[in-house]
């Protein structure tokens, strides 16, 4: 693979600086002994200490992560099935119709999704709380997965399947050994963006939650009127650092395990 030049490096550097600027800004002020995100007074760890003292906050953070992971996993599963179904549709008109239906939840503002899901849940008698929030997050993350997987499916060369079939592969083999590996990047993209959807959502969760169950977004938005405390900044800082560490750690581990195989390439 060709080496990356100076100009592209600079370009990427700028993109990354902009992407991380607001996060570093948040983390910077999490060390502020003053009350808010301006006028840095002096350095303190007190907001970090406050995070670990607040058991309710920790429970909420864990709730948020559990919901995000499970909803992303399940929506990815259903979304991949959906993408396969759409891709294999014979009737082009039907295909477009289903694809449009798929995108409705993306275009609908959260208030509408939240309100209509709430009506739906109370109608069929789902108890508001963990289950209703999980189901809603799965529901609004499915379309993004479908959209991420579809282009990979349409890129796939049908001769691959023919070849596999000629070699006597069963239906299951074709799926697990040919199709899924090929669309894997699309699946991962869908999964990660589903995580984003879940972690970012406020309005839908607000409507469908209840019985003491809360997520971080709901908590943060409802603080807006009286002012978001720097404890939340500190918390975001911790989450951010842990996430980056996990991602880099996982990546390094993965490479190490694969290294003996890939070693020759280097």
């Amino acid at each position: 693979m060709e080496r990356i030049g100076k100009l592209p490096k600079l370009y990427l550097a700028i993109v990354f600086i902009i992407l991380y600027a607001p996060i570093f800004y948040l983390i910077f002020y999490s060390f502020n002994s003053g009350g808010g995100m301006s006028d840095f007074e002096s350095f303190t760890w007190e907001h970090y200490a406050a995070v670990f003292e607040d058991k309710r906050l920790i429970v909420i953070v864990l709730n948020t992560i559990i919901i995000a992971l499970l909803s992303a996993l399940l929506s990815t599963t259903i979304g991949v099935i959906g993408a396969l179904a759409i891709n294999f549709m014979r009737n082009k008109k039907m295909r477009n119709a289903v694809l449009s239906l798929n995108n409705i939840l993306i275009v609908s503002p959260d208030v509408i999704i939240g309100a209509s899901f709430l009506i739906l849940f109370t109608m069929i008698g789902v108890k508001l709380g963990f289950a209703s929030v999980l189901i809603s997050h799965i529901a609004f993350s499915i379309p993004i997965v479908v959209i991420m997987v579809l282009p990979k499916l349409s890129e796939m060369n049908p001769t691959l399947i023919d070849a596999a079939r000629d070699l006597g592969a069963t239906r299951k083999d074709v799926m697990t050994r040919v199709i899924l590996p090929f669309i894997q990047p699309g699946i991962f993209a869908g999964f990660f963006l589903a995580l984003t959807y879940s972690l970012d959502d406020f309005a839908v969760t607000f409507f469908v939650t209840g019985n003491g169950f809360s997520t971080l977004s709901v908590e943060i938005y409802s603080m807006a009127r009286t002012g978001i405390s720097l404890t939340i900044n500190a918390l975001s800082g911790i989450i951010f650092i842990v996430t980056v560490a996990l991602v880099i750690g996982y990546y390094a581990l993965n490479r190490k395990m694969k290294a003996p195989l890939a070693g020759v390439k280097k």
């Binding site: 309100a115 709430l118 607000f206 209840g210 809360s214 709901v218 409802s222």
Partner: peptide, 17 residues
């Protein structure tokens, strides 16, 4: 539990659950 607007709060109480 927390809310961020009067109307949102009423919406939830009205709908029950």
């Amino acid at each position: 539990e927390t809310f961020d607007s009067n109307e949102g709060m009423m919406g939830k109480i009205e709908q029950g659950g």
